[in-house]
Structures are given as structure tokens and as C-alpha cells.
Design a binder for these strands. Structure first.
Lengths: 234, 234
DNA sequence: TCTCTTGTTTGCGCTAAGGCAAATGCCTCT
DNA sequence: AGAGGCATTTGCCTTAGCGCAAACAAGAGA
């Protein structure tokens, strides 16, 4: 591992509260892997041989149903953990992870987890905190799916995406990786057609600008109004 | 704690792999609490002062949305953990837990968690395994909400309920606590009207028998066929 | 530059399922 | 036993949003 990586890594929230020396020991046992866009990071049902931290790029975590549907569970941004099945006593990955853009990840063999957890309590605590957040997020998703209409869900999804992976540009806030209508549909549980219609409508109102695999949110506030709308619609 | 409880408790999967002596130390620090039907076990946003094991009864975990919707996150059956926010680094409960029937729970103060986790690795491992399962379940819920129609979701919900809390009777498998159409609706993200219509239809076909706050599944296999149906419907 | 592939837009019809409303039935409490 | 409150059933209407299908860009590769 290049020392360049170390300084970059020290700032990540996953490693908060870990002494520099410990961090070195942790990082020195990782291997750094480059993954090209659309290549898998890990796959559903596969043996969970490693856990990862994403250093650069974006990863989409997807579950496939027997009947061919694909549901996006979450997007992973730089700095986030993924594939931590081993911390939860699982031996296989529960979903597919695919690079949504070219990625660089740090990978540790899963069998190191017990040692890490015992030796570096902060690391373990940070990890479980992440798990807690994800459980929370998943429940929020369920609630959104249960109580909101498609328009609100798509608005929420875009807001979540710009919060997580937004990049300010002169036009507005860009979702910083290629994302298609189909992708948004798989996040929100709808169809690419409906997403397309919504984006077109919002584009007309000046809320967003979008193109091929590209979405820029121009008016986040107005989008938020739609997302939080109770009953009436404009 | 009566020693009666100890023998009962030793069999629970949460305590698997824990030496009898350790189990005694764990259980001796719990207090046993009786909670009447419809009374809260813990509440959303409240400080997570304790974590629990349900010994008897059934608990419904519900999240309320700002706009008055209620979504049932899960049902807890005897032997299961609940309120384990502290193990995930949270300081407040993420949802409401209400007794769906009269309950008996064991409660430990949250501040014991770090000690327990350090002293009894099996306990910690078991707990995180439960968390893993719940995360999994939550994702399954999201997928069901995204890809299945209401009929399939309700069928799945009933199957899950009889698996978790089913009791064989002469008529079929009874869901062993009072459950209304509204409750089923809150699990599946639909309305009590739709649930009522479905149950009536299934009753006509002899798949279930149901009454006021009561559901008996007569033909689990046929229900499974509905739950797993791809496109066509009978 | 031209072509091909892949993503996007949009129109149209259809239906699952929600909303509303009213009737009925079953417990529970007095 | 009677009364009141819930839970349930059902009919009817409305509609959000899906499916299908066809036309349209806009990159990518030759």
C-alpha cells in the first residue's frame, strides 16, 4: 500500500477513533483492487471471502429476484464499507455489488474480521454503527414504498443521491456517476417509463436537467417540496 | 429471577453457545417485566435505556410517519431479541414496540451491552447474527414491495406469520395472537379493505378461515402458490 | 462519416387497488 | 339483556401508474 493511501484513509469515518499505529496495521493487511465499470465487486450467494472499503468510484448493490426483477438496495460512495457479511455471521454475500463507475477498493479477507474486531474496538463499533444506519435506511425504504406515491419516492431518491454523491456544477447539483432512468426505477420500485415521464415534467418546470445517464438537480428545495408533499400535487 | 426461567431461557437461540455459568451471570442482571396487551415496550425516539428478550407473548414493532401512517416493521415472537439499538451504537429506539398480546420480557440496561459483548463473545455473535437476519428481512420486504402485487404480498405475510407464530389447530394453522385486517394491511403496505377482500376470497376457496382479529390458514400450500405466482392468477 | 446499439421519450389503453360510504356482525361492558 | 363500539364486509367509482409499442436521440465503434 502506498503511503498516499494512508493519509487519505485516515480521514474516513469508518476509521474514526483508531490510533495511527493501529490504522497502519489494519491498512497493511488490505489489498487494493481496481474494478472497471460494470464489473462485479462481489456476487449474491457467493462465499463472502472479503470485506471492502470503497476508496474511489461508485458501487451499486443489487438484488435479483427469481423472476428476473432487479432491485437496487443501495449505492455505495467513497469511504463506505461494503460486503461486511462476515461481521454479521453470514458466510455468503446477500446481494450483487457492481461498479457503477471505475472503482478502487481496499479488500480484507473475511477471516481477519474476528481479529480486527477484538483488536480494534473502535473499528468494530464503527462498523456496527454503519450496520445500524443501513438497517434504519432499509426500514425507511419500506416505509416509503408503503406510504408514498411514485413521484415522492423518485424525488426522495434523487435527493438521497445528490446528498450522497452530489457534485456542484454551474447548472446545479450533478449526480456524480452514470445513472440511467432504469437505475432510478430500480431504486424506487417503478418503471423506467414512469421515471422518464417524471424527469421530463420536472425538466419543464426547471427543477432538474437531465440527459443520457445523467441527472442534475437544479432546484433541490422544490424537489424536497414534492418529496414531502402530503396529499395535494401542483 | 426464578430458576424456572433459567432452564427455559437456556434453550433460546440467542443464548446458544453460552456456558451455563455465564448464562447465569447474564440472566441474573436482567429484570423480568410483564407488559399488558396494547402497552408499549419501548417508544420511537425515546432514549434506548434497555434491550430485551421476549419470553412470552407477541410484540409488534411499528414506525409512524409524520403524516399519520403506521407501518409495521416486524413482529417479535418469544425467544427473540428486541430493542438492541445500543449494540448498533444508537442512543434512541428507531421504532415503537407494542405488546400485541400480554407479554413477559427480560430487560437489561443498555449500558451493560459493552460488558456483555466483551465478556460473552457468543452472545455478541448471536446478536449480530440476528441483526444480519433482520437487515436481510428488511431488504426482502423492500423487494417484495417493489416487485409483487398486493395479493402476493399478503399471502407472503400470512405465511411468514404462521411460520413465526403459527399454532396447529383442528382447522389449520392459527396465527397465535389477535391480528386485525388493519394489522395485516400495515405489514403489507395496503389497506384494510383490500386485505378484507382478499381474505374473503380465500375463505370462499377454502384456503383460510378468519374472523374478528383471527386468521387460520387451512391450505398453506395453496397460499404459497399464490405468493410465488409469477404472472397468471387463478 | 455512417451505422449500430443503447438509452430515452411519449402516446394510448387498461387494470389493480385505493377511497368513500354504508351496512352488518361480533365483543365487551354495564 | 341491552347498548355501544369496533372490526369487518362489500359495492361503486376513480385513478395512479404499468404494459405495450413505436419513434427518437446520442454516443460508440468501424
Amino acid at each position: 500500500m502506498a503511503s498516499l493511501d494512508r493519509s487519505l484513509i485516515a480521514g474516513l469515518s469508518v476509521f474514526e477513533g483508531i490510533a495511527a499505529a493501529d490504522l497502519d496495521r489494519i491498512v497493511s493487511q488490505a489489498r487494493s483492487v481496481r474494478i472497471a465499470k460494470d464489473q462485479p465487486v462481489f456476487e449474491q450467494e457467493q462465499e463472502a471471502h472479503s470485506f471492502f472499503v470503497l476508496l474511489d468510484g461508485h458501487v451499486r448493490v443489487v438484488k435479483s429476484t427469481p423472476d428476473g426483477h432487479e432491485v437496487t438496495v443501495r449505492y455505495i460512495s467513497p469511504g463506505e464499507l461494503m460486503g461486511i457479511a462476515s461481521a454479521l455471521g453470514r458466510t455468503t454475500y446477500p446481494a450483487n455489488a457492481v461498479a457503477a463507475a471505475d472503482c478502487v477498493v481496499l479488500a480484507w479477507p473475511s477471516q481477519l474480521w474476528p481479529t480486527f474486531a477484538a483488536s480494534f474496538p473502535s473499528f468494530s463499533a464503527n462498523t456496527y454503527k454503519v450496520v445500524g444506519t443501513r438497517l434504519q435506511d432499509a426500514h425507511t425504504r419500506v416505509i416509503e414504498m408503503s406510504t408514498e406515491q411514485v413521484e415522492q419516492r423518485v424525488a426522495h431518491a434523487l435527493l438521497k443521491l445528490i446528498k450522497q454523491s452530489g457534485k456542484k456544477t454551474s447548472e446545479g447539483i450533478l449526480i456524480d456517476f452514470p445513472i440511467s432512468r432504469q437505475d432510478v426505477a430500480e431504486i424506487t420500485g417503478t418503471t423506467l417509463h414512469t421515471v422518464s415521464r417524471l424527469l421530463s415534467a420536472w425538466e419543464d418546470q426547471g427543477l432538474v436537467k437531465s440527459g443520457r445517464q445523467r441527472v442534475v438537480v437544479v432546484e433541490p428545495h422544490k424537489l424536497l417540496v414534492i418529496a414531502e408533499a402530503r396529499a395535494a400535487k401542483s
